[in-house]
Design a protein around this nucleic acid. Structure first.
Lengths: 336, 336
DNA sequence: TTTTTGTTTGTAATCGATTACATTTAAGCA
DNA sequence: TGCTTAAATGTAATCGATTACAAACAAAAA
């Protein structure tokens, strides 16, 4: 591989001049700039990033840690993250945490080892000790998005999960539903708690009483939605007329459970999801759901991290708006 | 940040010894190894990867270029790629090409600039000139998976698209269908041509004649499947009784088009997809489709690239098996 | 012409780890 | 004990780019 020395030789100048011609052209005469450009082309030079990174002690790489690349929710968030990063000349390294603490640890290590300049965390399913340790030294550039830790304060981009769930529940109540169940995500997850709280308040506001066996826990997969939906629908007593699911995949699982149980959506059962993933428009019936501004979340999170890296003073906590999208999986409650 | 020098000082030895204690412990006495380990812990040392990469001129990073992270097809492929990479101590940098030639160029540049050791290409939608140029110098570690260029030979992991499409079509024929349409992916894409060829042969084998206006082109999205499906179903003459779609998302789009047109699947229309993505079990009806071993494709591709990097002698072209998964979107052809 | 000021370029130290080679130390053996 | 061999450690060059500082040069002002 040709190095900056080869270019310097070909352009008949010093390496310092080559470096300047490439990095800060205004510091160099027109003639030299030209000669260097030609020399670069001639020898086929390309800059050795490791050398630059070593010298500058930065890597222009941001690590994004997410629970699972396969989750369609994250793809738009990632698009947003990437677009901002690229504009600012940064790379994005996607790290699938995949329930593997060692892996997460190794991603965190990329920062002290100068392979990454900062981290964006999209999941709370990571070893708490690690995060706590990093958050302790204030210099560690770490931003959360989508989720958050309820016992640890980090710069965060999020939505108002409680409010969104509250509104979704209110909507069901407004349709006349009185027996409203919910399928949550993993109970230890703070955003799931928030959504659950929103659901409870929605019921309480309407003076409906909350039945504990209508609050069931899933894990955000199709399958868990299907299973929990099946269980909810086969209860002996009067079954719920509406189910609020904490994400779309589980809601789509419920749709299938309803079909299998011969329960017609939305006539006999209303279903609401959360996230508004692409598939929610193509399932049968189309899913009423809470839309999240995923791309904007990604963009904002990356901007926040870059601002922190540049030591700019910025609000460390931003909330973005959600919107209830009404489609055809919800309807007026059936008469008893 | 503490460096190797700080460790050396704390362990009362030279930097060379520290380096050896960490990288090749067998070259160092037990006592020293111990001292070094303690010193590392004490000063909180972590290796500067840029320095190591510079010295070793490698980066232990593999770039994976894909057309679109949002495409659920790729998530399992990526899982496979990552698992093998991590085992071998490599990082995976995911690059979303996103119809942006500049971006792709910048990903390709990571190799000469020592930020990446090799590239896995999952898309043919990249500037041909770039690929051709790289492929020209034989040293450039570049592997294709899932797709391929028909005018350029590169190490490749793939499936037999023609055969898979042939079998899918045969299956429809065996169910008694005589009017079988197809929705292809982008026509310039070699794998789409292969699948189309398989379809044609399937019809030809059965002595069915091929109707050109039953071969329509989509772009692998839900939406294009919906649109093309709608058009196919509203044709004046007798409409097709089966549609073979070149991926699942388009097939799911067709399912929706059929619902909207009041055509019952599978009684009046059979639909087959391709890929077997997660959704295909949760749509209504469940989708008959061609299963691809996505995770295995990823694993095999990464292994191939790592073998190439290690200069091991390996077959540069491997084909993996597909399987037709019959679910409920296909049935015997309706009587005329 | 001389001095001042500003522009352009070069010299050489530096970033942090690795490793060839040299040196020291220890172990084995007669 | 003295000699050979092996193991352990140290010295210092190296990877390639950046940049503080110095030097050279040109243009402007006196």
């Amino acid at each position: 591989m040709p190095t900056i020395k080869d270019v310097a030789r070909a352009a008949n100048c010093s390496t310092a001049t080559v470096s300047r011609a490439l990095a800060s052209p205004e510091k160099v005469s027109d003639a030299t700039r030209h000669r260097v450009a030609q020399a670069v082309a001639k020898v086929g030079y390309s800059l050795n990033a490791a050398a630059r990174n070593l010298r500058r002690s930065e890597s222009r790489t941001i690590v994004v840690i997410l629970p699972n690349i396969a989750n369609p929710f994250f793809s738009d968030v990632i698009s947003g993250l990437e677009s901002v990063a690229h504009q600012a000349g940064y790379q994005v390294l996607l790290g699938d945490a995949g329930n593997n603490p060692d892996r997460v640890a190794s991603y965190f290590n990329l920062v002290p080892s100068n392979q990454a300049d900062g981290i964006i965390l999209l999941s709370t399913e990571v070893p708490m000790a690690l995060v706590r340790e990093r958050q302790a030294d204030a210099g560690f550039p770490l931003v959360m998005a989508c989720e958050y830790f309820d016992n640890l304060s980090l710069p965060t981009i999020h939505i108002d999960n409680e409010q969104a769930a509250h509104k979704a529940t209110e909507y069901l109540v407004a349709l006349g539903h009185q027996r409203i169940a919910t399928i949550t995500g993993p109970a230890r997850n703070p955003i799931c708690k928030d959504r659950l709280r929103g659901y409870r308040h929605g019921l309480a506001d309407a003076g409906l009483n909350i039945q504990d066996d209508w609050i069931v826990e899933g894990d955000f997969t199709f399958h868990s939605g299907y299973e929990q939906g099946r269980i909810l629908l086969q209860q002996d007593k009067k079954r719920p007329t509406a189910i609020f699911c904490q994400n779309d995949e589980m809601a789509i699982g419920v749709l299938k459970a309803a079909r299998d149980a011969g329960v017609v959506v939305p006539e006999q059962l209303s279903v609401i999801g959360f996230d508004d993933i692409g598939f929610s428009q193509y399932c049968e019936p189309e899913l009423t759901t809470v839309h999240q501004p995923r791309e904007a979340i990604g963009r904002t999170a990356m901007r926040l991290l870059l601002d922190i890296l540049k030591q700019r003073n910025v609000p460390l906590d931003q909330s973005l708006k959600t919107q209830l999208i009404v489609r055809s999986s919800t309807a007026r409650a059936p008469r008893d």
